[in-house]
Design a protein around this nucleic acid. Structure first.
Lengths: 233, 233
DNA sequence: TAATATTGTCGCAGATTGAGACAATATTAA
DNA sequence: TTAATATTGTCTCAATCTGCGACAATATTA
């Protein structure tokens, strides 16, 4: 157990979605002096639930508790085992490899996606990285290892789950307009939706509470504000 | 690396579905002299893809290659860490623990479900178990650890995926009648479906090929036989 | 006061779904 | 040989859902 109290061979990666400027974005880390971009990830302590490990990592990266989180796949191919990548990251940080050789071993990574309110987040790098920043899905840098595949699968799973639950709400502030909610859905699905149909469908689910109108200062009729009614899905 | 060439801390469990007697059934192992029942599972070799490890295990348990297989969740709570269970199994087999202490360590288990043609399978126990047999979902014995939860989640995921793809077909022989297909769906969903509506919907998907009629010997109009047309989903 | 951009809602046509009905047919009973 | 029976293949009809345009309401600007 020379692995600093972490389980060997097991890692997690997280695809943290936010919504801003009518676009879906995710958090990406950039490692010191390597030009390497990666998903936020981490390891699991010996006495820690896998899910708790991920929440711990999310808290460190975003400052948030109580995040909407969904596990979607465990990536376990041999092809993703590239010790030279981890070695480069360690060396760029002047770390000796003593006691860290377990990091060069093979890992199976359990991937999660999270949905958060963009405005509440303070992206925070870790010791090995010099940035943790938002990137729009259509403007991602090249990601290391199989992280691009992980992002693709995260988005696909999110789309599949979108119809079952009203998860899109987790990407918005407590109060939001129908138009904002529609824009979230359009960003996730990658297609335009008909305004009337969307509103009719969402309201028919009976889980939105309508509030007083919001006078935005724009040259048009003021929209209602809504909030989510019910337990976190 | 005293773990016989397997990755530490990582296991898999498989929920292998078959259809027989109008019921959904799964394969359950019974361990020697312990009264313990469990899902078929195993470990991942150092130079082996996670998915390949599961297929290797399925081949051993069922004799089949090319199985419809879907990963659905990685179970990683600390609560599932109960070394005394594994110890009891080993002792009941007169195994010394020398060289096997890695088996008493904590494991995260990646769970898969498989859909197979019941009639093609020859259930085969492994060295530690004295049976590998079919159990109907509503007549399962008590399963060790969190395996009951794994089964529940497998069934739920299967139901969710059922509408998206025509996966139910994987539970039937190459040639089948519309009634048989409907019975598979009813067994999975746990509810009766309307005959006319079901047939219309399935045929509208355009992925079934109709063959000549099948004279069953029953006192009624002979049904058509169908086969699945297209690539394995 | 008129023009403009959105919003909230409605109505209609087409598609989908749920449920029953009826003829066709393979076998058994008379 | 013929009638009875059980199941199959298909159809129809009503109810519901969906896509899409239309129209009035309204907050601001010209």
């Amino acid at each position: 157990m020379d692995s600093k109290g972490y389980l060997k061979h097991i890692a997690y990666d997280s695809v943290i979605f936010g919504f801003s400027g009518e676009k879906l974005k995710i958090l990406i880390m950039k490692y010191h002096n390597t030009g390497l971009f990666a998903l936020p990830g981490g390891f699991v302590k010996y006495d820690e639930d896998l899910n708790d490990a991920v929440r711990r990592g999310l808290k460190e990266r975003t400052g948030l508790d109580d995040i909407y989180l969904e596990q979607f796949y465990a990536f376990g191919s041999v092809a993703r085992y590239k010790p030279e990548v981890m070695e480069a990251i360690m060396k760029a940080n002047n770390q000796t490899l003593d006691g860290y050789s377990w990091l060069l071993d093979r890992f199976i990574s359990v991937a999660y996606y999270a949905l958060i309110n963009y405005e509440e987040v303070v992206p925070t790098p870790d010791a090995l990285s010099d940035s943790c920043d938002w990137y729009a899905l259509d403007e991602l840098p090249n990601l290391m290892l199989d992280h691009s595949i992980i992002v693709t699968k995260a988005l696909q799973t999110l789309r599949d789950n979108l119809e079952r639950k009203l998860v899109g709400i987790n990407l918005l502030p407590t109060l939001f307009t129908m138009k904002e909610l529609q824009q979230v859905y359009e960003a996730i699905l990658g297609e335009k939706l008909h305004r009337g149909t969307f509103q009719r469908k969402v309201l028919s689910m009976g889980i939105l509470k309508r509030h007083e109108k919001h006078f935005s200062g724009a040259a048009n009729k003021a929209p209602f504000l809504y909030s989510f009614e019910g337990s976190l899905c």
